[in-house]
Amino acid sequence: MATPHMASLYHELQRVFEARPTDLAKTGKLLTQLKIGLVDAGLYPPQGASNLEDLVVTRDILEIGALWSTRVKDIPSFDRYFSQLQVFYTDYSSVLPPSKREYPIRGLNLVRLLTQNRIADFHTTLESLPLSADQIAESPYISHPVNLERWLMEGSYSKVWNAREEAPTEEYKIFVDSLVGTIRNEIASCEEAAYNSLPLKDAATLLFFRNQTELLSFARERGWQIDLTGATIHFTKKGEEKIEIPKEKLISQNLAYARELEQII
């Protein structure tokens, strides 16, 4: 490390972060100090050929930073840490010894993309992982988000719900919890289309609500008709959809054909 001061700060950070329960405020303060130190040492971002040991320490600090940001639920900060870490995971991968935190953090990033509904980015990131299909299935950190995505796409929402318990590390749960809101809205829109009416009790289980008041306020938000005496929800059908002829689209299409034909003749 560049200076003895930095080294002591780094050890302090490690100690504070490993301690249970972690003192999050103190970790944050240490991280800020260390980052300034790293900038002075020209390691943030790393430039050219640096000392191997320094690079490992820098990576370690950034990894702690990424995990810390998820714990304090600061997603943009996680984003920043992750993009800085990517340099270490891709460009320096042949030089540096592999980090044991690499896949947990990559997995976290995947879950983050899922919660933000950035499915295309999710797949691009997944594709660029240097892992074969078997390795993905074996690594709990990566297979977790992969399964989540699959279940979300095919509609097995109960599996997503149950997966909260199977999260490989604590940090995953924070992200998965924010998924629940998305899922609920998805399920609600499915129910509106698929049911005429639904008993209140079943609706609560389908939507993963523990008590009725939560359900009632949710139903009011979506504008469902609640029949309290019969304890059922009625979904208003949005009238029989008439097949409309998309006039404007057809006209513009035909004009385009005419223009092209004109050019040919």
């Binding site: 095919e154 509609g155 097995s156 929402y157 109960s158 599996k159 998805e186 399920i187 829109s189 499915c190 129910e191 509106e192 289309a193 698929a194 049911y195 005429n196 639904l198 008993p199 079943d202 389908l206």
Partner: peptide, 24 residues
């Protein structure tokens, strides 16, 4: 599970893959 089947069918109806409804 049946539970999954219900969600999956519900999603299929919403996405317009099939025409129908579920009687819970």
């Amino acid at each position: 599970s049946e539970e999954d089947a219900e969600y999956i069918v519900g999603k299929a109806i919403r996405d317009g893959v099939i025409e129908g409804r579920i009687v819970h």
